[in-house]
Each structure stands twice: as structure tokens, then as C-alpha cells.
Amino acid sequence: MMLLKSESLPIVSEQDIVRARQVARQWAIDLNFKLIDQTKFVTAVSELARNTLIYGRGGFMLLEAVEKDLRKGLRAVFEDRGPGIPDIEEALKDGFSTGNSLGLGLPGAKRLSNEFEIISQPGEGTRVTIARWT
């Protein structure tokens, strides 16, 4: 896997969610993502950035443009030092929410991505990685 470029963005306010979406959109355009793929990626980024802010009490997003097997792709890593997720399986079910939301964030972002990985330790934080390929 080749790393073409990367950028780290803080996610500590609502404005940062908007900023994360905008940067993700621009990079997707630069990599010649089709409109539908751009939209899916940006929407997944928005969901996960909001989770980082609300449930993770802030953190950052690492955005990477990568190339593997001659295909270009975008990868976004969301990391926080929040309370973590005790039951990941439960959190990935549609409609599960500990906050006041629809509970579509995690499972939705997973459906919108080609690759999805979540690592979480209660008390230590959460790291979610998604990737989408052209």
C-alpha cells in the first residue's frame, strides 16, 4: 500500500465536523471518485466525526490518500480518548444508541465503506478506520 498524502484534523467542535466533510470531499474529488462514491465517503466521515465529538468527547481524524493494487482510495482514522465502547457488537446494530440519536452512525458508516475496523477499550478510547476505493 502506497501512501500518497495524509493530513490530521482535530475534531473538537461542531465546525470541525463540517471541516472534516469538506476536506474529505475535496480529496475524493482530487482522486477522481465518482459522485456517488464521494457522497458515501463524505457521509461516513460526517457520522464518525460526530461520534468522535459527542461520544469520544473530541479527538482527531487522520485522512490518508492511498494506492493499493493500482487502485486509489481514501482512508480515514477517527481516534478519541473517550469512555470507549463496552459492547462493540451491540454498537454496530442499527438503532442502538447511548445518546439521543438514531443509532445509525456506526452501522451506517460501515455500510457506506469498503473497509471498516473498530478498536475500543472501555476507559481508554475508540479508534474507527474506514476506507473507500475508487
Binding site: K40, D94, L102, L104, G108, R111
Partner: peptide, 8 residues
């Protein structure tokens, strides 16, 4: 399409 995929 994205909204439907998201589950909404």
C-alpha cells in the same frame, strides 16, 4: 442512494 444505504 447514500441515505438509503445509511439506513434512513
Amino acid at each position: 442512494i447514500t441515505l438509503v444505504e445509511l439506513g434512513m
